[in-house]
Design a protein around this nucleic acid. Sequence first.
DNA 1: CACTTGGCGTAGACCGATTTACGTCACAGC
DNA 2: GCTGTGACGTAAATCGGTCTACGCCAAGTG
Lengths: 341, 341
Amino acid sequence: MTDARAATIEDVARHAGVSRAAVSKVIRNAYGVSPAMRERVTAAIEALDYRPRVAARAMRGSSFTLGIELPHIGNPFFTKIVAGATAALQGTGYQLIIAPADENGDEGIRALGALADRQVDGIIAISPLVSTDWLERLGARMPVVMIGRHDRSEHYDTVTGDDASGTRLAMAHLFELGHRRIAHLTRSEDVTEPGSGTPHAIRLEEYLAAMRAAGLEDEIRVVRTGMTEDAARLDTLALFDDDRPTAIFAGNDELALGALRAVGEAGLTSADVSVVGYDDVDMASHPAISLTTIDQSGVEMGDRAIRLLLERIRDARTEPTHFSVTPVLKPRTSTRAVRAG
Amino acid sequence: MTDARAATIEDVARHAGVSRAAVSKVIRNAYGVSPAMRERVTAAIEALDYRPRVAARAMRGSSFTLGIELPHIGNPFFTKIVAGATAALQGTGYQLIIAPADENGDEGIRALGALADRQVDGIIAISPLVSTDWLERLGARMPVVMIGRHDRSEHYDTVTGDDASGTRLAMAHLFELGHRRIAHLTRSEDVTEPGSGTPHAIRLEEYLAAMRAAGLEDEIRVVRTGMTEDAARLDTLALFDDDRPTAIFAGNDELALGALRAVGEAGLTSADVSVVGYDDVDMASHPAISLTTIDQSGVEMGDRAIRLLLERIRDARTEPTHFSVTPVLKPRTSTRAVRAG
DNA sequence: CACTTGGCGTAGACCGATTTACGTCACAGC
DNA sequence: GCTGTGACGTAAATCGGTCTACGCCAAGTG
């Protein structure tokens, strides 16, 4: 209120009786600083409560900021990724900022662009809807790690779960329980475009392949829904109207929870309709829910993404690296053997 | 890969055959631009795919970035707030960035400092652990809106739920169902310090007041736990060991879900132990969970916080404003009448 | 003794935008 | 014809850091 503006490097320099460059050196721990000067400067910084403006630093140097773009912040799997990322960042001097995209496809590009405009030193992207071309160009400009995408680029790293084998685990589990009429609950076409390499696309393809391999081509049933639990709930309810399946393989846990909600609302239980999800969100293990799902360790993915990013930034690595997490089946009570008869 | 660096305002100016200042004017929609020039400059921007560097803008003007600090990103109530905030920001030209704090008290200050260093135009803070003094100083420097805090400052706005009346709703509901032995599950002392005005402090105080007013002083039982669902689960299980309460009023839904988990794991049901939460997180309404809770509309809080912030930024408002959301009881099946006998 | 060498510090260019101060031009009014 | 005025542009200062190039000095070296 009173004195207004915060101290600048100039103020610190004057206060310590040295040059701006000297202060800068001390801050950056650069070469060519005597212990005596370091002492004086540190004291001045302390005294004036000085904090370097990131915007000014970013103009020539780096911003010490990493950005992560999140579509749909409500998905608890993404928050696991963020948790892993923040943990990996402890003590590195880098700050993570999250740009929420929400909504539709263009929002992802908007959020990524916003991060780039803010001169972050590196970006973690999750949005599967952004085109490879666009990402490729972004990756040429700055370090980028893409989570959950199976295309392999020259210019960015990827961290993925093995969605194909994860889906096979889920399907094998259902087959073992005797299910034949298995529906797949997935998102809209744009996220499952064949060959696009998005997780949902691969899970869909692998579902189809598993059904065909089991000779169940006629039982194939793909249900499209939105991004939220509530959309999944409504579309699952509609699915029950005609010719109910005995099991539902959902594209992720959020959709699976919606399906489970529908099962409950329709007065059914897992004895009538089994549900398998994907991600092993925290809530899945809750005893009241007990959702069978595929664990792909979001925390490890976030951790890994940060490590790869830091390698690119600090060690100036440029050859692309691809890391894959092995999925694990978590059988719980939302799946049961199909009713005899 | 080839041409490297992105276009600057200088490039655009050269391409359009005008001065840098002219381009700047066009971008900012400032006064003194002929239609002809606007046309030429716009074309050049288009052609070069120019995007202004935020860091450079921030050095003199504003960054068009708003920051929100989130402790513990895993709490789904906070994601509701973010959802409300992003929605309110649509089309304003401002970008929201989230600084995750996680962990303990100091992390909140670290995250807020990081946002300030990044020259955001305004900050929404949720961390209840930061001292009023510190926030006061921050608020003197830049627009700040504090969510969920009942102290009234000269220098920042607040958006709160009416925690006192919300707690009264919850307790009245339990009394009505015949409960007398009601425990309160809350966080550690630092978040519930009497007089600090944090939501958890007020809920605790109001719980104590309600118990005393009902003549149940002897039944008061305050259980401390951590921040996560899992901590709540463990401490609730421990609580069951000796002399089980018939109802638990939890400080928020995340803790309530942990308590519910414990109830399930102990082989009990809501007929044995009723549970009330606070926040009305999405999962609370899931039929398998069906948690009785207090709705305080996180979405509206996020929306409101953004509006207040934009008022301070654009209209240069300086008198502090305080907005309160009225809580609503959502009775569900996690609470039942106490067993006769 | 002249000459390198390494340690320490400074001056000043630079990053890419905004903003201020000022110049020019056309036109209206007297 | 002279002057005042508003519209439109531009040059240059500025924001707060980083980084390069260079200067100075004391200690080795041949």
